[in-house]
Design a protein around this nucleic acid. Structure first.
Length: 311
DNA sequence: AAAACGCTCAACCGCTACTAG
DNA sequence: CCTAGTAGCGGTTGAGCGTTT
């Protein structure tokens, strides 16, 4: 178990505060004490637990440490694509109800989901110079990010199917079990038991996908269920530089109330020649980093224009 | 090589809700 | 009903680490 403490606040060293309570990162010894105590006595009554276990910590601190780190069923590692999709879906439904969202992602803590949202999702809102709670950004998530996640999940699923069989079809039916929010991918249609349905016609074949491969254009390890941020660089690597492969018509969330779609999808048909924009040198705008972005440069510029226009 | 910068995420804080006496 | 103790939630912070300059 990696018990190396990272960030912290308060007393980092072993000094104790006036109340004789420790703060800051947990030591291995403290972790063992807490684990052993809970193993024999169970959870609950955190303040008394802290005292009885010989931990000079607040009950609150013990509870947090247990729930977010030491619990045996805590799932560590990258948020998978399926989990990302579910987080976006549930957040659009419930907002910042992190613990409620976490209940649908087994092994994930509210803290982890909250961190994911703040570090990844809010970052993109910032790049687009719009508020994360704005309708524009929500539409972007709904009509751009989520369909792309779906597409990529499908690609990974198709790659998995191909790796176990000799068939080349991309229309495999796959069930992505994401907690209680089970999603079913069938012939390009994703649905979940929260009512959300997205249609995506597979255009992302294993042949042109590296999502099942082991590295991206930056030489870093990318699992089939890693972040979406290498999406476009992935395409480039696989000799499919056409940003138009993502067609607006391929995506149809069931309750279309807005028509905000990728500029590559020509949905707006504003006469902007997106394809010619910096495509060759893959320039990214306003410091937007291609290696960590779910939108490509065209999307970012287009959306920034739209947002600024509408402000 | 090293300084600067940016990102991640563990841990804390303040607050509210709940419960037992 | 009131109060104190506890549990849990969402927001915030900042050390450590990786990347860029």
């Amino acid at each position: 178990m990696d018990v190396k403490a990272r960030g912290c606040r308060g007393n980092v060293q072993s000094e104790e505060d006036p109340m004789d309570l420790r703060r800051g990162p947990w030591t291995v010894e403290e972790d063992f004490k807490l684990i052993n105590y809970i193993a024999t006595h169970g959870e609950g009554r955190w303040n008394s637990l802290a005292r009885c276990a010989g931990l000079k910590r607040t009950g609150k601190s013990c509870r947090l440490r247990w729930l977010n780190y030491l619990r045996p069923d805590v799932r560590r590692g990258n948020i998978t694509l399926e989990e990302q999709l579910l987080i976006l879906e549930l957040h659009s439904r419930w907002g910042n109800r992190w613990s409620k969202i976490a209940q649908h992602l087994p092994g994930r803590t509210d803290n982890e989901i909250k961190n994911y949202w703040r570090t990844r999702v809010q970052k993109h809102a910032k790049q687009l110079k719009c508020d994360v709670n704005s309708k524009q950004f929500k539409d972007t998530m709904r009509y751009l990010w989520m369909p792309r996640l779906v597409e990529r999940i499908q690609a990974a699923a198709a790659a998995t199917v191909n790796s176990t069989t000799t068939t080349t079809t991309t229309s495999a039916s796959t069930t992505a079990n994401v907690g209680t929010g089970q999603m079913v991918l069938t012939h390009g249609v994703i649905s979940n038991d929260f009512g959300g349905v997205a249609q995506v016609t597979p255009s992302y074949t294993p042949e042109n996908s590296s999502t099942a491969a082991s590295s991206d254009s930056f030489g870093t390890q990318v699992s089939p269920v890693s972040d979406l941020t290498d999406y476009y660089s992935t395409i480039q690597v696989n000799n499919n530089p056409n940003p138009d492969y993502f067609q607006a018509s391929q995506v149809g969330y069931s309750d279309h109330s807005s028509s905000l779609i990728s500029p590559s999808g020509n949905y707006y048909n504003l006469g902007i020649d997106f394809q010619s924009m910096d495509q060759q040198n893959n320039l990214w705008l306003d410091g937007v980093d291609a290696s960590d972005n779910f939108l490509n440069a065209e999307d970012v510029l287009f959306l920034q224009q739209q947002f600024n226009f509408n402000m």
